[in-house]
Simulated assay, not measured.
Amino acid sequence: MSRIVRFHELGGPEVLRIEEVEVPPPGPGEIAVEIKAFGLNRAESMFRSGPYVEAPEFPARLGYEGAGVVTAVGAGVADFAPGDAVSVIPPLSITRWGSYGEVATFPAEVAVKHPASLTWVESAGIWMQYVTAYGALIEIAKLARGDFVLITAASSSVGLAAIQIARAVGAIPIATTRTSAKKAALLDAGAAHVVVTREEDLAARVAAITEGTGARIAFDPVAGPMLEQVAGAMAQNGIVIEYGALSPDPTSLPLFPLFTKNLTLHGYQYKDVVRDRKQLDRAKRFILDGLASGVLKPIIDKVFSFEQIVEAHHYLESNQQFGKIVVTV
């Protein structure tokens, strides 16, 4: 029996329970991992509370990513053996696989032997943020040197990963934040410019930064009324990549900016990368090279113990964090 976080109904953080559960051995193509730490993601909060792109099957497990030691391998697994230290790229289904627990099984194809220089806490929270940002910016938008890229909700772990990836290829990241409280930290994290959206007009400020051209790429998890502002800050023939729905308000299509600027509005999930083996291999190489060189370095905001999982989810939903929230087991 192992301690596993599960929930039996949709709701707030209080629905999360630590329960003793018999975890089945890894099936064909899977590995079992003794979890040392796991990162938290807003997608997990949405899965727990609803609505989300995937519906839970109760009692439901939770968790997209983690790091630990391989304890067993299923049939057909050749690249891993018991004792290997691994971290996990989020698999395709949070319902089928969940990392919140002492033990978890995962498809071997999403496990990675991460750089030994990373701690368990760092390695537990690297893949969701970097794979998400890589797939959008590099694979879809073809981000290149000199490009202006607008990154909203930039103090999130994915936003910070996007800033680092932009810097890695010589692009110019423009970060947004609602208040000035995180402005200095975003500049220290590599943002070339920071726009405080409650104090500044986004389109006007981006126009000033780009000398009137606007941003070629926008990377946005907020949607809602924010989408109209983002569209107004875009360059001719720009691309807006939507990868979330954090705003509780309805999202209206910004028709006139789309028409007049010939914009592309592209919906996106990290799963686009995981489904494509060649893309996934390219993502692994890019991210591992960046981690090894230090160009990419996860920013950890706060660490909670396993027993503090409810408190950790409350903190996740507070929007206070700057970077990744990690839970140790």
Rank of each mutant, 00 (worst) to 15 (best):
H313F: 05
Q308D: 06
S305G: 14
L280D: 04
E307F: 07
Y315M: 01
A312G: 01
Q308T: 02
E311L: 05
V303M: 07
R285V: 14
P298R: 00
F304P: 04
H313L: 00
H313M: 01
V303A: 12
Q320D: 15
K302L: 08
P298S: 03
E307H: 11
Y315T: 00
R285K: 08
K284H: 05
L296P: 07
A283D: 10
P298Y: 01
K324Y: 08
E311V: 00
R282Y: 14
S318C: 12
F286T: 07
P298K: 00
N319I: 03
S305I: 10
D289F: 04
K302I: 05
D289L: 09
I325D: 03
Q308G: 02
H314E: 05
D301L: 09
Y315R: 02
I299D: 04
I299E: 14
F286E: 11
I325V: 10
A292H: 15
S305H: 09
G294I: 11
S318Q: 08
A283Y: 07
L288K: 09
E317I: 07
F304W: 06
S318R: 05
G294H: 06
L288R: 09
R282T: 09
V295R: 15
E311D: 08
S305D: 12
L316K: 01
Q308M: 01
H313N: 03
K324Q: 13
K284I: 12
Q320R: 15
F304V: 06
L316M: 13
S305C: 08
I299V: 14
L291W: 11
D301H: 11
A283P: 09
N319H: 15
S305V: 05
L288A: 08
K284N: 06
I309F: 09
E317A: 08
R285L: 15
